[in-house]
Design a protein around this nucleic acid. Sequence first.
DNA 1: CTGATAAATTGAAACGTTTCAATTATTATA
DNA 2: TATAATAATTGAAACGTTTCAATTTATCAG
Lengths: 341, 341
Amino acid sequence: MTTIKDIAKIARVSIGTVSNYFNNPDLLSKETYEKIRIVIDDFNFHPHSAARSLKSQHTRKIGIIPVVSPQDNFGALPSDNVFLEFLAAANAASAERGYGILMEAVVDDHLQVEKYKKLIGEKQVDGFLLLGTHVRDERIMYLLDEKFPFISFGRTEIGQPYPYVDVDGAKGIEDAVAYLAGLGHRRIGFIKPPDGLMCSKIRLEGFMNAMEKFNCVIDPNAIVEGDFSEESGKISLEKIIDSGCLITALFTPNDLAALGVMRAMSERSIKPGKDISIIGFDDLKLSAFWNPSLTTISQPIRHIGLLAVNALIDILEERDEFPQIIVEPRLVIRESTAIVA
Amino acid sequence: MTTIKDIAKIARVSIGTVSNYFNNPDLLSKETYEKIRIVIDDFNFHPHSAARSLKSQHTRKIGIIPVVSPQDNFGALPSDNVFLEFLAAANAASAERGYGILMEAVVDDHLQVEKYKKLIGEKQVDGFLLLGTHVRDERIMYLLDEKFPFISFGRTEIGQPYPYVDVDGAKGIEDAVAYLAGLGHRRIGFIKPPDGLMCSKIRLEGFMNAMEKFNCVIDPNAIVEGDFSEESGKISLEKIIDSGCLITALFTPNDLAALGVMRAMSERSIKPGKDISIIGFDDLKLSAFWNPSLTTISQPIRHIGLLAVNALIDILEERDEFPQIIVEPRLVIRESTAIVA
DNA sequence: CTGATAAATTGAAACGTTTCAATTATTATA
DNA sequence: TATAATAATTGAAACGTTTCAATTTATCAG
């Protein structure tokens, strides 16, 4: 195995100089640099990452700990495609800056904090990327306690400042309510994401505020808790209808649930987009292709992934304090919403 | 920072014994083991992973190198959701066996092999997981050359034996042709996945064989090349229709493309599932919910992810030679196929 | 109780880097 | 030309483990 030592010997410099080649190239004279470059190219040499990490105490790796079960899908995450898009962007951005992403799944929600402890203790990563924050997020409280670098996609209600990127869900809902109100809707239903999730709280607040502002009717029966699945959309719709509550429009936790809602409507001969307007959240690629195509609150998820990773690496490298970034969602109007009948 | 040394001192044993606690626990006497356990629990100690890797020359990490662009989606991968499902399963399975997954994206196809070289040179991972194999896959040829452990999801046409898990795409198509033939279809179209991909070749062969077997009409105009996108489905359909070729059924590279085909049909007043039967590939969760719901060849993708990771770790740990696993796809019959009009 | 054997434990030498104080070479200044 | 200041380079020590030959302790047969 070739090491920095071999390179040094062949290039007729000291190992410290070869080390500087990688870590402080501007300390080297042009000639020395070139001399070393040739040898390294020649051997296709790459420095041993574990040795580097051992000495330098950083890994140039970012950790992500998803909750996975072999049957189900990624667990506490906003929703599948959103996660994939986020991951794609995060991966691209981190690769760009010379970082890798270490994923180590946890099969049970409760083991999550343990896993963070483990990865920190083993010094496997320099920082973490968190998704799907809770109102009081244990992981964030733990990482804050440990002063371990991280950034979350999503806020929480923890008092201390901490780094996050989030989408302004309240604003998204407010814009949508304004739009619906403009179409004449007053009786608007709302399927909340699961309780405990921060996005759920934020969006609900936005909903309540906007409803009041536009003189809409807030019917408690029209506000039900669901989750991000297609199935849940169906169940939630049934719950609202069966309560005898009459609505002309409905918010869903995400596009997938919106699809479930639309299917359930068809089964009951309610025409989605005509009898009841539907608004999703996320803007999956597919949502434009459904029938009716889905009006939805679009999260710029790739942009969020990019921002998150870059902000995290800034923290890691330049000790930028607490980046707190809010991005605007965008209401994408399609066929699933219409003027009130 | 606590080290094995501190633990050793406090537990009044040698550092070698503490090391054995982690690596050869059965060498220790029950009492010694317990003594150490208590100290370790007390300190919440985790051994430094870089130090372990440096000495032991393995990392307990599995590499995945996706092709990502900040705009587009994961590139050379079968299709988005398939990748996510695979990743979820792979993550769960590897976590189970004490491995993490290191993802380091590459922004350009051509840089792929370079990235493999880098990760190998830096000793970042013990093995690789490859997806989306090509007929002559450069990555596989390189890894084989280097004798570096890997397993691929997908076969190639390289002469040497190497480890893979694959779905029997030919069988899947054959079953589907048999099914269509049973419904009276004879003029069946086929949208190929991109040329160069191994799955493309395998499926086309299956198609040709089955068509012959069932006395179907092979019209060259009915066989076009597409890709895994919705857009491509649309274009491919138009190409076939515009060629004047009359078909009663059509295979698509995946469910997404099938959706595009169905949309394009609607635009031309062709009724998907009635005028032309459509068969997808993958069986996305959503496919059951489209209108018409999609008949498709289902890949047991989570199972494949599990098998792949376990086979790879077997190679790494027990030097199991060349696992070569083929799993059967399953034809899922829904509304997008019907008796020929 | 002895000697032989097996089981448990020890500790020093690596693994391949980074770091940094010390040294040497180069350049600028008077 | 001598001196000071700066730029380049050096190499030994450390990072926290694993490994393994050597040593100690325990067990067993006779």
